[in-house]
Design a protein around this nucleic acid. Structure first.
Lengths: 221, 221
DNA sequence: GCACTCGACACTGGATGCAATGTATACGTT
DNA sequence: AACGTATACATTGCATCCAGTGTCGAGTGC
C-alpha cells in the first residue's frame, strides 16, 4: 500500500512522534499539503486517521497536536500497565511452548541491552527511542497483533508529549527490563507478567513525582 | 459534531454492529453514497476510520466487512480479558474511594439484572446486546476514557461476527456478572479484577469448545 | 483613546470531475 | 469445447472547485 493517503499518514505520524511537531501546534490542511507536496484529499484522510488514533484533536476549526494532561497520562499508563503485563505473559507462554525462535529471543535481549547502553549516554531522545523499541519488541513477541496495535497506539501518544521535553530526566528504569527478559527466557508467564506490571507501576510513580507539583492545576503540560 | 462524515461513520458502524452487514460482505463507496444519500467524500472518510478500527478491511479493490478467524477471536479475547479486569479493578477502586455515585451503581446493577432477564428469553440478539451494555457500563465506571475506547473497539469487532450468528447458543454466563458487581459494590479491587478475569476466561473457554472442531483449518468463519 | 462593528480572508466540509486500474465477460482461436 | 486474450465497465484514488463559516484586522463612532 503505497498510495498518497497512506504515505501522508505515515509521514505525519513520523513527524508527530519524532518531535517535529509539538503538542498544541496547529496544523492546517493547506500547510501540510505544501509540506508533503500532495493534494488536500489524501491529507484529510490522514488527518482523520490520526484523529481516530488520538494523536491530533479537532478544535472545530482545524486540528491541533494532542497534548496529554496529567490525567490523560495517568489513564494511558494504567492501560499501558495492563497491556504490557499481558504481552509479557503471552511472550513467556510462547517461549514456554517453544514457539519463540532464537532470533526473536536474541532481538529481545539486544533491545534490552541497547536501552541500558543508551541510558548511560546523554542522548535522552535516543534512550527514549530504545526504550520504546524494547517495549514494542515485547509486544511483537506476544504474538497477538491486536495487542501489538493497542500498545502501538499508546506509545504513539507517549511519544508526542515525551519527545518534546526529553531534556528533563528521562525516568528510565532499564534494570527492570532484565527481570522481564529473564522471566520470558525461562518461559515463566506468571513472573513475566508480575515483572512487567511492576515495571510500569514504578514508571508511573516516577512520573507522578515529577508532576505532582502541578497536579491540581488544569492540563498545562 | 453533526457533519456528514461523522454521521456516515456512526450510521455505518451501527449497520455493521447490528448485523445489517455481514462479515465478508463487499462495500462499494457508490453503493453507500446512495444508501446514505451523501457524496463520496464523507463516505470515504468514514470508511477509513472504520478501517482503522479494524471493522472493515481493504482488499486492494474496495473494502469488505472484517471477519474474525478463530485465531483473531482468541487474540481479541486475550485483550478483552486484560482490559475487562483492569476496568473492574478501577471501578472497584473508584467505589472504594467513594467516587461512584449511587446512580452509577444503580445503572450497573440494572445492567447486570437486564442480562439475566434477557438470557432467559429466546431473544438471543437482545441478550447479546444486554451483555454488551453491561460490559460497556463497567468500562464507563472505570473512569478511564482510553480504556473505555479500547473496549469499545474490541466489542465492535465481536459484534460484527457475533450478531450474524447469534442463532447458535449465545454462551452467556450472566451469573458471573454478580461476582464482579458485588466486588465493585464492596470496593474490593482485587476481587473485582479476579472475577472479571475469570469471567472472560470461562467465556473464552466456552467459545473454544464451540469452535475447536475447525481449530486447525484456515480462517474460514 | 478605546471599544464596537463591518468586511475581507483564510480555512474547512462537501461535491464532482478525471485518470488509472483491476475485473469480468465475450469473442476468437486451437 | 476449453482456454487465452482483448475490450468494456465498474470502482477507486486524487485533484480541483464551490459554499459556508469563523477569525482577525481595520476603520469608525463614542
Amino acid at each position: 500500500m503505497h498510495n498518497q493517503a497512506e504515505l501522508a499518514y505515515r509521514r505525519l505520524r513520523e513527524r508527530l512522534m519524532d518531535g517535529h511537531y509539538n503538542p498544541g501546534d496547529r496544523l492546517t490542511e493547506l500547510g501540510i499539503c505544501e509540506d508533503l507536496a500532495m493534494s488536500r484529499t489524501p491529507v484529510r484522510e490522514a488527518l482523520r486517521r490520526l484523529q481516530s488514533d488520538g494523536l491530533v484533536a479537532s478544535t472545530g476549526r482545524g486540528v491541533v497536536v494532542s497534548s496529554l494532561s496529567p490525567q490523560d497520562m495517568q489513564h494511558a499508563m494504567q492501560l499501558h500497565g495492563a497491556l504490557d503485563a499481558l504481552a509479557a505473559k503471552l511472550a513467556a507462554t510462547a517461549q514456554h511452548e517453544g514457539r519463540l525462535s532464537p532470533a526473536q529471543l536474541g532481538a529481545l535481549k539486544r533491545a534490552s541491552r541497547n536501552v541500558e547502553e543508551r541510558a548511560e549516554t546523554s542522548d535522552a531522545a535516543g534512550a527514549w527511542r530504545a526504550n520504546l523499541d524494547f517495549h514494542m519488541m515485547l509486544a511483537r513477541l506476544s504474538g497477538n497483533p491486536l495487542l501489538e496495535d493497542a500498545l502501538d497506539r499508546i506509545w504513539a501518544r507517549f511519544a508526542i508529549v515525551s519527545l518534546s521535553n526529553v531534556s528533563r530526566r528521562t525516568d528510565l528504569t532499564p534494570r527492570q527490563h532484565d527481570a522481564i527478559v529473564s522471566a520470558i527466557i525461562d518461559g515463566d508467564p506468571q513472573r513475566a507478567e508480575a515483572a512487567a506490571a511492576e515495571h510500569v507501576r514504578e514508571a508511573a510513580e516516577m512520573y507522578g513525582e515529577g508532576h505532582q507539583d502541578r497536579r491540581s492545576g488544569p492540563s498545562a503540560l
